[in-house]
Amino acid sequence: PVYLSVKADNSMFIGNDPVTDETMITALNALTEGKKDTTIFFRADKTVDYETLMKVMDTLHQAGYLKIGLVG
């Protein structure tokens, strides 16, 4: 499974590897070998604001990742 996490300080990680807004999709493409039907499990600290969550989800959708599971 692929886990994308947003921490309380808005830092992002794919698994244990830090990513930025600019590198997130490139890292996901490498990890999933470009398979856009891969489910991305998205988790965020409860203090992360809604705007940040939606920005990340919008970026995922624009890149073609449509299977996003929200996890606690």
Rank of each mutant, 00 (worst) to 15 (best):
P1S: 09
P1V: 15
P1H: 13
P1K: 09
P1C: 10
P1Q: 11
V2I: 14
Y3A: 03
Y3H: 09
Y3L: 10
Y3K: 03
Y3E: 06
L4I: 15
L4V: 14
L4T: 01
S5E: 12
S5H: 15
S5Y: 14
S5I: 15
S5C: 10
V6L: 13
V6M: 14
V6E: 00
V6F: 14
V6T: 01
V6K: 01
V6D: 00
K7Q: 14
K7G: 11
K7V: 08
A8W: 12
A8G: 13
A8E: 10
A8S: 10
D9A: 07
D9W: 07
D9T: 06
N10W: 06
N10L: 14
N10A: 10
N10R: 10
S11P: 01
S11Y: 06
S11I: 11
M12S: 01
M12T: 04
M12L: 10
M12Y: 13
F13R: 04
F13Q: 05
F13W: 15
I14S: 01
I14V: 13
I14N: 01
G15R: 03
G15K: 04
G15W: 04
G15F: 07
G15V: 02
N16S: 12
N16L: 09
N16I: 08
N16A: 12
N16W: 07
D17N: 11
D17E: 12
D17Q: 13
D17A: 12
D17L: 14
D17I: 13
P18N: 06
P18T: 07
P18E: 11
P18M: 12
P18K: 12
P18F: 09
V19E: 01
V19F: 03
V19M: 03
V19A: 02
V19W: 01
V19G: 01
T20F: 05
T20G: 05
T20N: 09
T20W: 03
D21E: 15
D21W: 15
D21L: 14
D21H: 15
D21I: 15
D21K: 13
E22A: 11
E22R: 05
E22F: 07
E22K: 10
E22L: 10
T23R: 04
T23Y: 07
T23M: 07
T23I: 04
M24V: 09
M24F: 10
M24R: 00
M24S: 02
M24W: 06
I25N: 02
I25P: 02
I25C: 03
I25K: 02
I25A: 04
T26G: 13
T26Q: 13
T26I: 11
T26P: 11
A27M: 14
A27T: 15
A27L: 13
A27Q: 12
A27D: 04
A27P: 00
L28S: 00
L28F: 02
L28M: 05
L28H: 00
L28R: 00
L28E: 00
L28Q: 00
L28N: 00
N29T: 08
N29I: 10
N29L: 09
A30I: 14
A30Y: 10
A30D: 12
A30W: 07
A30E: 12
A30C: 06
A30M: 13
L31T: 07
L31P: 01
L31M: 08
L31G: 03
L31R: 09
L31S: 05
T32R: 02
T32L: 09
T32H: 03
T32Y: 04
T32M: 06
E33G: 15
E33A: 10
E33M: 14
E33F: 12
E33Q: 14
E33S: 14
E33D: 14
E33H: 13
G34E: 05
G34V: 03
K35P: 02
K35A: 09
K35R: 15
K36A: 06
K36S: 05
K36P: 05
K36D: 03
D37A: 06
D37K: 05
D37V: 03
D37W: 04
D37N: 09
D37F: 05
T38D: 03
T38M: 10
T38A: 07
T38R: 07
T38S: 07
T39H: 11
T39L: 14
T39K: 13
T39R: 10
T39Q: 15
T39D: 07
I40D: 00
I40W: 00
I40S: 00
I40R: 00
I40F: 02
F41E: 08
F41I: 15
F41P: 01
F42P: 00
F42C: 07
F42E: 00
F42S: 00
R43V: 13
R43F: 15
R43A: 14
R43H: 15
R43E: 13
R43G: 07
A44S: 07
A44K: 04
A44G: 05
A44H: 09
D45F: 04
D45G: 04
D45K: 02
D45A: 07
K46P: 15
K46D: 13
K46S: 14
T47K: 10
T47W: 10
T47I: 09
T47R: 11
V48E: 02
V48C: 05
D49R: 11
D49M: 10
D49P: 15
D49Y: 05
D49G: 14
D49L: 13
D49N: 12
Y50S: 11
Y50A: 11
Y50P: 14
Y50M: 12
E51L: 12
E51R: 10
T52Y: 15
T52D: 05
T52K: 13
T52E: 05
L53C: 07
L53P: 01
L53W: 10
L53V: 15
L53R: 08
M54Q: 14
M54A: 11
M54W: 10
M54K: 14
M54V: 11
M54I: 09
K55S: 07
K55P: 02
K55E: 05
V56Q: 02
V56F: 06
V56W: 06
V56C: 05
M57C: 06
M57N: 02
M57V: 11
M57L: 13
M57W: 09
M57Q: 05
D58K: 14
D58R: 14
D58W: 09
D58N: 13
D58F: 08
D58T: 12
D58A: 11
T59M: 15
T59H: 10
T59L: 13
L60M: 03
L60Y: 00
L60V: 06
L60D: 00
H61Y: 12
H61T: 10
H61Q: 10
H61D: 03
H61A: 13
H61S: 10
Q62N: 13
Q62A: 13
Q62G: 09
A63Y: 06
A63E: 07
A63Q: 04
A63W: 05
A63I: 03
A63P: 01
A63G: 07
G64A: 02
G64S: 02
G64T: 00
G64H: 02
G64W: 01
G64L: 02
G64V: 01
Y65A: 00
Y65G: 00
Y65D: 00
Y65P: 00
Y65C: 01
Y65V: 01
Y65L: 01
Y65Q: 00
Y65H: 01
L66C: 09
L66S: 09
L66R: 09
L66G: 07
K67M: 14
K67P: 04
K67Y: 11
K67N: 13
K67V: 13
I68N: 02
I68M: 04
I68D: 02
I68F: 06
I68Y: 05
G69D: 15
G69S: 15
G69F: 14
G69A: 15
G69P: 04
G69H: 14
G69C: 12
L70C: 10
L70D: 05
L70Y: 10
L70T: 13
L70V: 11
V71L: 13
V71M: 10
V71C: 10
V71H: 10
V71E: 11
G72K: 08
G72N: 12
G72D: 15
G72Q: 12
